[in-house]
Amino acid sequence: MKIATIKEMIAQIKAGTGIQIIKGNMTNEPPPLPYGVYNITSPYIKGRGRGALVDYANDGVSYQKRIEQYKFTISFSFYAGDIETTMENAFKVHQWFLFMGQEFIRNKNLAVVEVGNIQDRTTFLVEHYEYKHGFDVHFRATDEQIRELSETIEIINLGGI
Rank of each mutant, 00 (worst) to 15 (best):
E130H: 09
H138L: 05
F135W: 02
M100D: 12
I105C: 03
F135I: 06
I105P: 09
I118L: 01
V113G: 00
E127T: 10
Q145K: 06
T122W: 09
T122A: 11
Y131E: 03
F99N: 15
H128C: 04
N107F: 13
N107I: 04
D143C: 06
T123L: 15
F104Q: 08
F99T: 14
Y129F: 02
A111F: 11
R121F: 09
R121K: 15
R106S: 01
V126A: 05
D120Y: 08
V112P: 03
E144D: 10
Q145P: 01
Q119N: 13
E130T: 06
N107H: 09
K132A: 11
G116C: 02
V113F: 14
D143V: 00
G116Y: 07
D120P: 07
E130Q: 14
T122Y: 12
E103T: 08
Q145V: 00
G134M: 07
L98T: 02
A141H: 02
E114Q: 14
E114M: 05
N117A: 13
F135L: 04
K132C: 12
F135P: 06
V113C: 14
A111N: 03
F124V: 15
E127F: 10
E130M: 13
Q145R: 10
H128R: 14
F124K: 08
D143M: 09
F99V: 14
G116A: 11
V115K: 11
N109M: 04
L98Y: 06
R140P: 01
K132G: 05
V126K: 11
